[in-house]
Design a protein around this nucleic acid. Structure first.
Lengths: 180, 180
DNA sequence: GGAAGATGTTTTAGCCTTAAACTATTTTCC
DNA sequence: GGAAAATAGTTTAAGGCTAAAACATCTTCC
């Protein structure tokens, strides 16, 4: 157990810790720093996506999902994979269709369902964006030793497990982005 | 140097690595996992804030800033500290004033400027929210060994440095939240 | 066959966010 | 003193996000 950065040995099975209110300083600090890192990177990537390709992260994210499914996806499936609401997907799809990057067609077998997939143009455009995205991330992490990266990845795995077990795993990996 | 999870020894000072296009798999994976963790936690905290206090993270964030400044803050100062735009602050302040949690008064010496501060009610309400917030974070991290938390904090520091040096430090810690 | 429930999508309503335009006030500087 | 520039804040326009309700279309099961 660690409180306010100092190690505290648990003296017995019914430690006082449970009785006195804790401030959880260590945990808060960790969360704040995690949030800061994620926001720094996200802000920068968003800015570059806008500047270089005049697009947004959610749009890029959607294209990344579609790129992995050449046969296209139903909107609901897309929604699940992106971890965003259905309504959100509708708007993003509208936008990408309008730009000619994806096309949408009603399923012949189920008239409720719509399937979307990348167009030729969309696939080519995505390839360029994915390359740039990948390079940008590498650039931002360039000053971090590879060894530290390995360690960080491991510990984030541990964090992820902890959060999943605390939330009943009900939140399955919200919104991944640009996985190529 | 590590590529795709395997260690690769640099054979000489002018390694081929620089010439051939890389996929930066390791960096991408790290970024995706970081984003997943941040989003999982943020989503859950947002949900609970809504459910328990019928408020939002930005509102909580604003109250946290004000709590640290008993004499109140000018809107511009608030905007700088929260790292959001001026217009954004206007809307949030309107909402909190309307709920009676903060009050806003025009500066007597400069009629352009407005100073906002927590009301008594606001201070009491914030105390409850901050306690819950802190407990929630601790709960989400509960399954992670304290040792891992320490390591994670260190490595995130390393990451932060890398990103800052890559972006010229131009992005000064976007939006911290609920720092109590 | 038809009601009930499940499933897929869209709509609605409400926040948050930035950038840019705008108002009002204060400062600067001739 | 008074015009020009700087500053503080608000408003507006455009986008993105979410949850929940509404709508449409299958599937199930009597």
């Amino acid at each position: 157990m660690s409180i306010a950065g100092r190690k505290v040995e648990t003296v017995d099975a019914e430690s006082k810790v449970e009785e006195s209110p804790q401030d959880h300083r260590m945990e808060l600090r960790l969360w704040l720093r995690l949030l800061t890192c994620a926001n720094m990177i996200e802000t920068e990537i968003r800015r570059r996506m806008r500047a270089c390709f005049d697009t947004t992260l959610p749009r890029f994210d959607m294209m990344a999902q579609l790129e992995r499914s050449p046969d296209g996806l139903l909107l609901g499936e897309l929604s699940r994979r992106m971890m965003v609401s259905n309504g959100n997907v509708t708007g993003l799809v509208d936008r990408l269709v309008q730009e000619g990057l994806i096309d949408r067609q009603i399923s012949p077998t189920d008239r409720r369902a719509a399937r979307v997939r990348l167009t030729e143009d969309g696939r080519a455009t995505f390839a360029k964006m994915a390359k740039a995205h990948s390079d940008w991330i590498a650039e931002l992490l360039a000053d971090m030793p590879a060894r530290d990266q390995d360690v960080l990845l491991q510990r984030l795995g541990s964090l992820k497990s902890s959060v999943q077990s605390a939330t009943g795993g009900a939140i399955p990996e919200p919104r991944r982005r640009g996985k190529t």
